[in-house]
Amino acid sequence: MTTALTNLQMIKRLVIKDWELAKKTIAAYMIAGIFTVGLMGMATTYTFNIGAILMITLLIVIGARSAIELVVNEKKDQTLPFILSLPVTVQDYALAKLLSNLVLYFVPWFILLVSMLVVIVSTPIYNGVIPLVVLVSMYILMAYCFYLGTALLSYSEGYTVAVMIVTNLLLNGFIIGLMWMPQINQTMEAASASWNPTSLLILAALIAISLAALLLTAYLQKRKTSFL
């Protein structure tokens, strides 16, 4: 019991350490986020489209920086050996990394997604685009889970960046693929969001793959014996 509590304290400290390291970057993202929401909120087609592009860029950049800054650089800068010399098990460290990265990415991701949905619902923009927006955002989250997993398991900048490139290239294909689907594109100009079996199936698949990626990462982390 005492060990668990001690570990919990250490995990908390490691998460706070990551927060301290990332807070400047997050502060900059906040400005970008407020600007983007304000731009989309102007509710003209032009500003909404620019805002949407900025939003997608922001979601990708936040994830990429968080994985590189908080995971890969930790090994590169020799912070990892130092931390593991502290009274902390490798599993505690791995759990703390997973937690901090998820929180530091998931919270901004969720706020940005909700903001985007509020913009769509409260402006003359067709609510029919909601499934597309949710699916694309979910894809970006899934991609993040992939390269976070890669970073946590390999601590390799090369592998992590490779996964980032592949998943971001596939994003274009994913969007084009969605636009080609009659079940998606035919309802995009509808007054209300139309969640049909196709879009729901894609959403469920994206969530399932994201969870599977995280669980697999956690499982493989647990089996790891050396982090150095």
Partner: peptide, 10 residues
């Protein structure tokens, strides 16, 4: 007074 932060007002 709209529901979104107005950039000009910010």
């Amino acid at each position: 007074e709209w529901i979104f932060p107005a950039l000009w007002a910010l």
